[in-house]
Simulated scan of single mutants.
Amino acid sequence: MTNILIIEDEQPAGEYLQSLIQQIMPEAKILDILESVEQSVQWLTSHPAPDLIFSDVQLGDGTCFDVFEQTTVRCPIIFTTAHDEYAINAFKLNSVDYLLKPIKSTALHQSLDKYQQTSGEGLKGKMESLEEIIRSQMLSGKTTRRNFLVPYRDKLIPIRDEEFAWFKIENGIVDGRLTDGRNYAIDKSLEELEKMLNPDDFFRASRQFIVARRSIREIEFYFNGRLLIRVDPVSKKPILISKERVPMFKKWFEES
């Protein structure tokens, strides 16, 4: 029996992948479907290692590489990704298999066949080189948006990206707070904004917040290894960096 772990932040996609795997490999056991970096780190540090991991690259609170930086993973990994063909070639060159979304049954079958012949030796080196390539692809292929047209009553308000202090989602509504204190409802999800904004200037602090570097005034140590971010203008809701994302936040703040 093959024990398989799935890391996928979209529940329907995770369940679909699970059903495909079980059709092709009935003897496989799906141990769990994890939706975030935080969940994945907790699971991998508290359970016996799986035989195989299927992992999406981009997760809601970071990337799969954040998981692998904080845990020891020696089993083969099959990535599921929506990256373009240039990035896909990078996967091939690094001898780590991939599945391009939307996942097809025939492609999954080929990946599982390849898994049967995969050795865990040298996986760490492959992961490190793959991470470097994927991160560079995410940045180099990304067109950041500097200007936004924000609907307000019967108008469209032009706003530059540097005018935003932070973005927040609450009750399904995304708000953008400007450095002068004004607040506008944004007709985009945080995931969409994260892809549009310059990653040197903005950080996905949590599932609820994206913060601009220029808005950060203080950083406090918080319970359970977390950080509390104090911003200007002030947010009524606390902006917390999870213990697992603290190293990434520090690196972003100090090096970008």
Score class of each variant (00 low, 15 high):
Ile88Phe: 00
Asn89Thr: 01
Ala90Met: 08
Ala90Gly: 04
Ala90Gln: 08
Ala90Asn: 08
Phe91Trp: 09
Asn94Tyr: 05
Ser95Phe: 02
Val96Glu: 06
Val96Gln: 09
Asp97Phe: 09
Tyr98Gly: 06
Leu99Asp: 09
Leu99Thr: 07
Lys101Trp: 12
Ile103Asp: 00
Lys104Gly: 07
Ser105Pro: 04
Ala107Met: 11
Leu108Asp: 13
His109Asp: 04
His109Lys: 10
His109Phe: 11
His109Cys: 03
His109Tyr: 10
Gln110Val: 01
Ser111Pro: 09
Asp113Asn: 14
Asp113Phe: 14
Lys114Tyr: 09
Lys114Gly: 03
Tyr115Met: 12
Tyr115Gln: 07
Gln117Ile: 09
Gln117Thr: 11
Thr118Ser: 15
Ser119Cys: 15
Ser119Glu: 15
Glu121Ile: 15
Glu121Lys: 15
Gly122Asp: 15
Leu123Ala: 11
Lys124Leu: 15
Lys126Leu: 09
Lys126Pro: 07
Lys126Ile: 07
Lys126Glu: 11
Glu128Val: 06
Ser129Pro: 00
Ser129Arg: 11
Leu130Lys: 04
Glu131Met: 13
Ile134Tyr: 12
Ile134Arg: 13
Ile134Glu: 01
Arg135Met: 05
Arg135Trp: 07
Ser136Lys: 09
Gln137Val: 02
Met138Ala: 10
Met138Gly: 06
Gly141Tyr: 11
Thr144Cys: 01
Thr144Leu: 02
Thr144Arg: 11
Thr144Asn: 01
Thr144Glu: 06
Arg145Thr: 00
Arg145Lys: 03
Arg146Leu: 00
Arg146His: 00
Arg146Thr: 00
Asn147Gly: 00
Phe148Arg: 03
Leu149His: 03
Pro151Tyr: 07
Pro151Leu: 05
Tyr152Gln: 03
Arg153Gln: 05
Arg153Trp: 02
Arg153Asn: 04
Arg153Thr: 02
Asp154Thr: 05
Asp154Ser: 07
Lys155Arg: 06
Pro158Lys: 04
Pro158Arg: 00
Pro158Trp: 04
Arg160Met: 02
Asp161Phe: 10
Asp161Leu: 03
Glu163Ile: 01
Glu163Met: 04
Phe164Ala: 01
Ala165Phe: 11
Ala165Gln: 09
Trp166Lys: 08
Trp166Leu: 12
Phe167Pro: 08
Ile169Ser: 12
Glu170Thr: 08
Glu170Asp: 12
Asn171Asp: 11
Asn171Trp: 13
Val174Gln: 12
Gly176Ser: 04
Gly176Asp: 07
Arg177Glu: 02
Thr179Arg: 11
Arg182Tyr: 00
Tyr184Met: 02
Tyr184Ser: 00
Ala185Val: 06
Ala185Gln: 10
Ile186Ala: 13
Asp187Pro: 11
Lys188Asp: 07
Lys188Met: 10
Ser189Met: 14
Ser189Gly: 12
Ser189Asp: 13
Leu190Pro: 12
Glu191Tyr: 14
Glu191Lys: 13
Glu191Asn: 09
Glu192Asn: 12
Leu193Ile: 04
